[in-house]
Design a protein around this nucleic acid. Sequence first.
DNA 1: CGTGCAGTTGAACGGGGTCAAGTGGCGTGG
DNA 2: CCACGCCACTTGACCCCGTTCAACTGCACG
Lengths: 242, 242
Amino acid sequence: MANLADHGNQVACAACVMSPLCNSRAVANGAPSPVELRRRIAAGERFYEAGSGRDTIFALRAGFAQVSLDDGHGTHVVRFLLPGDAAGLDSFAGGAHRTETIALEDCEVCVIPAYRTELLGRYSEATCVRMRELLSIQLAEAESHAAMLARLTAPQRVARFLLDLSRRWADRGYSSTHYKLPMGRRAIGQHLALTTETVSRMLSDFQAKSWVDLPWREVRILGMEKLRELLAGTPEGKAHQQ
Amino acid sequence: MANLADHGNQVACAACVMSPLCNSRAVANGAPSPVELRRRIAAGERFYEAGSGRDTIFALRAGFAQVSLDDGHGTHVVRFLLPGDAAGLDSFAGGAHRTETIALEDCEVCVIPAYRTELLGRYSEATCVRMRELLSIQLAEAESHAAMLARLTAPQRVARFLLDLSRRWADRGYSSTHYKLPMGRRAIGQHLALTTETVSRMLSDFQAKSWVDLPWREVRILGMEKLRELLAGTPEGKAHQQ
DNA sequence: CGTGCAGTTGAACGGGGTCAAGTGGCGTGG
DNA sequence: CCACGCCACTTGACCCCGTTCAACTGCACG
């Protein structure tokens, strides 16, 4: 287990959204840890599949993954997971996952059976509260994502996407201006509801304006403020209200 | 309080998503009820405003409302509330509502302070589990909504919208083919990410095909199967995969 | 080398947005 | 009582943004 960190960015448990569970007073007093085991998942493998794997939550320790949903009209990438993020919280309703999660790089995850969180909830009110917080945050993000799809233009979506990743890496103590982009253009498009061609065009455009530099599957943000202005719709880039 | 039911459809507590809380064993044994009070809210009034009203949940007993989100690029209607639905669950993260909820008809709501659910959670594990379920369901719906915006055409969105309301009314024991449509075309558009003109055109088109009849702010579905086919993209209405 | 996939770029198309005009219901005030 | 303004909704004509279709590059694989 010595070289797990080699596979890219990794977070300390302290930065993980699940840490309040692992480090609750109940666990300190002898209650079972929420984490059943740690598992390595190779790039391209699934954490869990849609319809299967009832009632398991995952915390991503290292690597990069995508959560996607197929409702019969094609695949939509619901969100990308960075180290410290949780996956599978949608399984509390009905006990089956409706989404699937795929590793985009080699990943290391903590496997948390849902029954353990419920068990833990009996000893620790903080656990219940924390689970509600996590779900509430993801709900807020999902609603915000829908609002984005509803109102932003293609360039704004791509700008928002880059700024989003920037902020999330910064939250974890990494650079906000230089980070990996391990997913392909297609996956970005499936996340932003754009075609691969449009994503490619927007990124090329940003690069031509020297707002970003784009080595192979990396981003270096050069004009953070320009991207923010585009997203806000400031100078001539009219922000269409309604 | 005698004629509250006059304002339209109403659900018995048994059909309310919050009923497992109100009827938990803990409450039967003397724990405080989650409902602080019942309140009437006139059409056009707000349940709560964005940024304000920290930590209050609402259960809609009678009437019709919309939950909307403004992120600086315009308003997006996140969902419509039918009797028995809950509002305000997004406030668990951070304690402030990011959305606002407006009554579209005169409403009657149960006001549930979040601290009471936490209090109740101490006595009753079922309460914790139920809150998780509710959040998980709303998360699943929000993700599904985003996927819809990402992949469906305008006619498909409107068809899905009509079928969705049909199913939800049916779940509550009302007609699945004839129901009120209390919101305006603009609000429908803000929910489906379409303009009022497009919503109007799609509805007119459905009516011309005799798939629906549209009296003033009502729907009568005549060709449920046709709408389903359109949504699924069956005969010539190609379902674009990716 | 040939095949295949990821990404880029160009040209043309079309779905839905934009703009505009028109209708009808409803409340208000003369 | 009607005149008027207002607002929700409808309908038509035009246009633009992002999709579609296609060609091309570069890199990884056998």
